[in-house]
Design a protein around this nucleic acid. Structure first.
Lengths: 230, 230
DNA sequence: TCCTTTTGGTAACCTAGGTTACCAAGCTTT
DNA sequence: AAAGCTTGGTAACCTAGGTTACCAAAAGGA
């Protein structure tokens, strides 16, 4: 039944490390609920009863949320193999945190949380792998959000840039590295205005703190950057 | 062996919903490693090999981290029943994300991730409950961090206040409610300066948008606040 | 009851950084 | 090769909001 979506399922992080044959057997056991949607149909409605972790099998959808201002905001898009609802599945919340809209005819399955955790007749490695995957996915989300909070709480523009560059240097293990973002993306990540980012990086260059050509950056005065990062 | 810490363990969220007798049996099975520390001894060292999810059994400790500036920052404090290391346990990371320092003589146990997930001889409800608890804890952290990111990415001070107050009203189910923070805490949560927060709330009051006396707040013009929250 | 501390509000001052518009260089498409 | 688009940098302008210092009211402790 799920064999037709073999390729899509194999790239879903929830099923990472599970052999295709094993996956088919496990899904037959777990028996997730497949639902189909036509273009522009609602897959989930914010606040309505949560059905389970969702996996997109076919088609495309967008995740939207209503801001407190009453505007609908697009948070992300989903394509085959993508997961959704994983952060709320075990959180104790009962309703969907966002509204998902099919942008093409789509197929999705929903895997109830208690099925992920539950006792299946075969206590196989695959089931344990499913649980481990679930934990890894949510943990990595939490760590990424934690890092984002750390960046966002820095008060000054120069402080944000300094911390970001020092972090990149640490990860690269060198004082010369390639930025993983273009300017627009870097500005968005740091939650600052692109022209302001440009201006400040230019000033830092003029002061001999850094040098850069496009995405290539070299830290010239790490100690000074560290002082700014405080 | 763990009976002496019965009270501490019963308040640990990792063991929520597990009967004390069941817990003792399960711990005998899981066999976490208990370690004792003297005051000022290091419980964990940032970057060093992760041993497992930690639970404080006795004593107190502080969680610290070295900023990119090289300063040691206190992130939080730990007391009996508190959990630590839960976000990295299943994330794939190998090292401790922070340094923990005992502030009193302390006892801690470490529960290896594979033991939480692993096949114990008794596939009991308690073990499944442990896994569910783990998922709930990490999920709730992720959701809290997500909320914090949402607040921090708002650009203007007035926007931050508007969103915060609209959110409080929604949770209270009324346009009059008590703030859950004092001014200092609210300023810290919104990452703004306390006098600025005070000034702006005063202006919003003068403009007839809200009314407040201390922690008691009443929204007078929700539509205007919604426009500001965009 | 009195003293101390905490909390919340205010004002003056100043600059950090957002906004807007524009432009050149580089890249992509026709 | 030329046209169109994206990216990165710049400058002028302006105000939002941080900082500092201070103070009154309220709360807590002796």
């Amino acid at each position: 039944m799920f064999a037709k979506w073999k390729a899509e399922l194999s790239i879903c992080p929830l099923f990472a490390g599970i052999a295709p044959e094993e996956l088919q057997i496990m899904l037959a056991c777990l028996n997730p609920e497949v639902r189909r949607y036509q273009k522009n149909e609602l897959v989930t409605v914010e606040g309505e009863k949560f059905l389970g972790v969702g996996v997109v099998l076919a088609g495309r959808a967008i995740v939207t949320k209503e801001s407190v201002a009453g505007n609908r905001v697009i948070l992300s898009s989903l394509q085959p193999g993508d997961l959704f609802g994983e952060m709320v599945a075990f959180s104790g919340r009962k309703g969907w945190p966002a509204t998902i809209l099919a942008q093409q005819d789509a197929a999705v399955f929903f895997l109830a949380p208690e099925k992920i955790i539950g006792n299946c007749p075969r206590q196989c490695g695959s089931h344990r792998r499913l649980i481990t995957n679930m934990l890894r996915i949510v943990s990595q989300k939490a760590l990424n959000l934690n890092r984002k909070v750390e960046h966002l709480t820095i008060k000054t523009l120069r402080g944000k840039i300094a911390v970001f560059l020092l972090e990149q240097a640490k990860e690269a293990g060198a004082m010369t590295f390639m930025l993983p973002f273009n300017r627009n993306e870097m500005a968005e990540f740091l939650n600052v205005a692109r022209p302001s980012l440009s201006r400040e990086m230019g000033r830092m260059k003029a002061e001999g703190l850094i040098d850069f050509h496009g995405a290539s950056v070299k830290i010239l005065d790490a100690e000074a950057l560290k002082r700014m990062a405080e």
